[in-house]
Nucleic acid binder design. Structure first.
Lengths: 124, 124
DNA sequence: TATTTATATTCCCATACCGGAATGTGTCAA
DNA sequence: TTGACACATTCCGGTATGGGAATATAAATA
């Protein structure tokens, strides 16, 4: 099995730095951006930008709207939520000491739950 | 230029679901885990697990310690911080209405800053 | 020392990439 | 209709993948 396609999910899509740049640009701008605007801002060729946008479209991170001969791209940030939710779990590992206590408590709770499930107290 | 290596940065490393599973397992367990434990938990072949661990090692997300013939893997979650920090910016897009007001204010501030930089009030 | 155990590494291959170049498609304007 | 413009898509080539199979390495054990 080869590497998963970039269009498989958001995690694969945002692995590419230019695609994160595109997301950042769309977030910073009030209004939807035409492809040409992004081309200029990113200093990349038009086909390259269009292809990155196609990936972001397929995973739903951006949406398009036609306006004349332009395509206006808009951020659909909610699709980033899986990434946020996953990584947020680990915030506690580098934030204050108080949180570290909480972290420890959660670990112990997890252990107890696991031990209960399989009456096998071996470490996971 | 092909796709960036999985070992290029954390974003590429965590694109692979099994590597995220490994991270999750290491986070849930109190103690460092031997490769064999992960093999059993993930139901993957030993070489596959070892290779995923090698990727996570190279980007610093896990650290290893020898204990006899075992290698004990431990999570180094702080290396996930770049992902967290990047995606956290977008939290506002799906959290409560109050935050959305704040979001709008930040956009306007960004616009003003951009306009100041290039005395060109065209939209970015 | 020979054997088992735990893990890492190498080789293989089908697949998918990212960028560049070229080309296709659709819209506006003369 | 003929261009001109904005954008998407296709084709190409060098590279890297992830899993399986086989092999290497290193420690424990008989």
């Amino acid at each position: 099995m080869p590497r998963a396609a970039t269009t498989t999910d958001v995690f694969n899509a945002i692995a590419e730095p230019r695609r994160r740049q595109i997301i950042d640009l769309l977030a910073q701008s009030t209004r939807p951006q035409a492809v040409g605007d992004l081309v200029e801002a990113l200093q990349l060729s038009q086909p390259t930008v269009s292809k990155h946008l196609a990936v972001l479209r397929k995973v739903g991170v951006v949406s398009v709207r036609k306006q004349g001969q332009h395509r206006l791209y808009e951020l659909n940030a909610v699709e980033l939520r899986p990434v946020h939710d996953w990584v947020k779990t680990y915030e506690q590992f580098w934030s204050g000491q108080l949180s570290r206590i909480k972290q420890r408590a959660e670990k112990l709770a997890a252990e107890r739950a696991a031990a209960k499930k399989s009456s096998n107290s071996q470490e996971l």
